[in-house]
Amino acid sequence: MQHWVIQNDGSGAHEADEPCSQEARPTHSPDGVDLTLIRWMLSLTPLERLEVLQATIRSIMQLRGDIKS
């Protein structure tokens, strides 16, 4: 039996050397959206999603030097 995985760069399926332990799901949609991030966000509670958003913004502002670490 052949086992197929989707490459993280979204370039499509390829034959894997090792069997997959679970059913492979596409990592990207045909229009290039990273589905793994969506699935991760959906696994969180609403409060956790808001905290992720705020932490992301805080990181961006720290990287830009807008705020101190």
Partner: peptide, 15 residues
């Protein structure tokens, strides 16, 4: 907007 999208699971950033 973006906060609404993020609360519903969309991986987006907004200020």
């Amino acid at each position: 907007g973006g906060v609404c999208a993020a609360l519903q699971g969309a991986p987006v950033a907004t200020f």
